[in-house]
């Protein structure tokens, strides 16, 4: 078994959005849509300010409500790495999965089906990192198998404090942010 995850170092990320452009070109994401995005959170008062920048995308949740609510099986968990995917030819465009995702990770592709991050499974299956990971100039993104204790991501999680997004929502997200 494998369980693909991402580990992202917020200390290094500069919010440049290279990951966003790379995803758009790699995956032909249509104009006006994005599969990944950036958030900035500022705490404190100037000049004792604190800024956290995060690159976000589908969390490939281990308990994915988007898959549970899908009436056609279009949204499914891929055998490889537990990646959550959509099969366009099965999708009816009911948008239940969009409403079910607490991260707003999905959108309706102009062609009508639900679309979102695929963890670039087409690259991963060829031994490459996802496009966003491979382009990041600060090398703050890491992709790998959480079930392999020797993987880079497992070691990073073991070594540094981290948090996923919205664990309260109960989806068991699989992207971890090092802080």
């Amino acid at each position: 078994m494998s369980r693909y995850i991402m580990v992202i170092d917020t200390k290094r990320c500069v919010g440049c959005m290279d990951c966003v452009v790379a995803c758009k070109t790699e995956n032909h994401v249509p104009e006006g849509f994005t599969r990944d995005w950036i958030t900035e959170t500022v705490h404190g008062r100037f000049p004792t300010t604190n800024l956290e920048i995060r690159t976000e995308r589908c969390n490939h949740c281990a308990n994915p409500p988007c898959v549970h609510c899908c009436p056609t099986g279009a949204s499914h968990v891929h055998a490889r790495g537990g990646v959550v995917l959509v099969t366009p030819e099965k999708c009816i465009g009911c948008k239940a999965c969009l409403a079910a995702c607490p991260y707003d990770a999905r959108f309706v592709h102009p062609k009508g089906y639900a679309d979102k991050c695929t963890f670039c499974i087409h690259r991963v299956e060829n031994g490459l990192d996802p496009a966003c990971v491979s382009v990041c100039p600060t090398r703050c993104m890491h992709f790998g198998d959480a079930d392999d204790p020797q993987s880079g991501v497992s070691r990073l999680l073991a070594a540094r404090p981290h948090h996923p997004l919205l664990p309260e929502a109960g989806t068991q997200p699989r992207i971890y942010y090092l802080t």
Binding site: G15, F33, W37, T39, E40, T41, V108
Partner: peptide, 9 residues
């Protein structure tokens, strides 16, 4: 909090 995303819908 700033979200850099403008996905329609």
């Amino acid at each position: 909090f700033t979200l850099f995303r403008h996905t329609p819908g």
